[in-house]
Design a protein around this nucleic acid. Structure first.
Lengths: 250, 250
DNA sequence: CGCTTAGTTGAGTTCGTTCAACGACTGTGG
DNA sequence: CCACAGTCGTTGAACGAACTCAACTAAGCG
């Protein structure tokens, strides 16, 4: 596993942040933007497959995903892995380290990922000086909680077919909100990732996905999943969607 | 289902809050305490089995559990239920309604529950005036996230026996932290609740729990579970515990 | 060209489900 | 006070979903 990371002192100026113009995100005041620009310490670029954060580590940093796909996961001692959620542009990672001291999960890149780096020590300053941004961080944490609730419902109570349909529909909706698809609706994950998210074996996952692809809802190619019919996947899963309007990020 | 709720204008003064003296909670400054006292609008007392919040509702309130046990859950249209987590004294409920407009899950009481009632509208004041309390709310949300991560790992990757052992150990540890057991280590849940938490059928849950009780680790009686050996349950599940030191609450 | 990774498929086994029935206990109304 | 219904826990039997094992194909890369 070639873990390569390049830390740039170079910073994309927050004023030119490629995420802010997206209709999915809320607008920020000049003041807020200025504060965040000073809060940001640099950028981190990471290859596909490399580990961004590792369980048990004490990281002095918080990150916001600027570009790319990744996932959070936990492992049991014997190697069983559970993927908890996926990270995409705008997502904040490392917040849990703030409350628990050490990370309780690992984070890995699915594609090349670039991250904005913040110093955890300065988080209290944000709370002191910018209540609106403090509220945003709570908002982001509560949103993650909401997504985990839905995943829990999925793994606990949906059938294998429903679960698979839900997961693909979920990733598709998130990618769509972020305008990540340029024509081809492509999600850069393997069936092993799907299996480790759904709590199924790789073999059974494969057979389940086959049923979905036979119905013409998706297609596997080039180490990833192409979504052909997101609406039908949602219908199969019985999932209502994220139902979000505008969303903050740091 | 007799849903009875009594709203008291009567308030336990925050200065006399029965939770604050517990070693499990962090200490608060006089200023913080004063603000929370004004933030609190009243108390709500609810019977065992009654619904505190219902999915889809728009509630103008936030609650902190003052006493009692309960649980959060989501349901699928055909009635399948997934319990997401349990609520106990010190837990904040209803925060998700702040970000999503409507509740995304329901909350039900397992025992008589009493709650401190806050007005959601005044939450922003808290963020503006008391950064430390604002940070606490984020802390609480991040803690919930951490617990959900562990539940997800459990349902997704642990065996039925490990799952059951984990859940009982988890509830036991939380109860112990809060000093809820006076001699008898009793958790007021039915096997149906266990089943709906673990994503198992009631029948298989019963057979799995039997194995644990045959090993002398727990005992069922009077509509609940008596924990006989929490350490061994933790060992079976491979769970490391919550590993918390001091914790805030509102 | 061999090595690795990802996806596919079949066969047999295990785990967990559904169906069904029953006992213990609680609360309620006649 | 008893009859009755309702909830909760328990158990056996049969079935089905998901797992493991194993072998194979296709593609990518040094």
């Amino acid at each position: 596993m070639a873990t390569s990371r390049r830390i740039h002192s170079f910073k994309t100026p927050c004023e030119l942040c490629p995420l802010r113009p997206l209709p999915h995100f809320r607008e920020f005041s000049h003041e807020e933007l200025e504060f965040v620009a000073r809060f940001k310490r640099g950028e981190l670029a990471v290859d596909a497959g490399s580990t961004i954060l590792v369980e048990g580590a004490h990281s002095a940093h918080l990150f916001t995903v600027l570009a790319g796909w990744g996932f959070r996961y936990k492992m049991l001692e014997d190697g069983r892995r559970q993927i908890l959620n996926y990270i995409m542009p705008g997502d904040l990672i490392g917040l849990q380290g703030t409350i628990a001291g050490e990370m309780q999960h690992s984070v890995e890149a699915l594609s090349p990922v670039s991250l904005c780096v913040f110093e955890r020590d300065r988080l209290m300053t944000l709370y002191n000086k910018h209540a609106s941004l403090a509220f945003d961080i709570t908002w982001i944490a509560a949103r993650e909680e909401r997504i985990l609730d839905e995943h829990l419902l999925s793994i606990g109570r949906r059938t294998a077919l429903e679960r698979a349909a839900y997961l693909i529909a979920f990733l598709y909706e998130r990618g769509r909100q972020l305008d990540l698809f340029n024509g081809r609706k492509f999600i850069p994950i393997t069936q092993q990732h799907i299996a480790d998210t759904l709590g199924l074996s790789i073999v059974h996952t494969n057979k389940t996905l086959k049923k979905l692809s036979e119905r013409g809802l998706l297609r596997w190619q080039e180490r990833g999943c192409e979504v052909l019919n997101g609406e039908e996947l949602m219908a199969i899963s019985g999932w209502e969607g994220l139902g979000e309007n505008k969303r903050p990020f740091i």
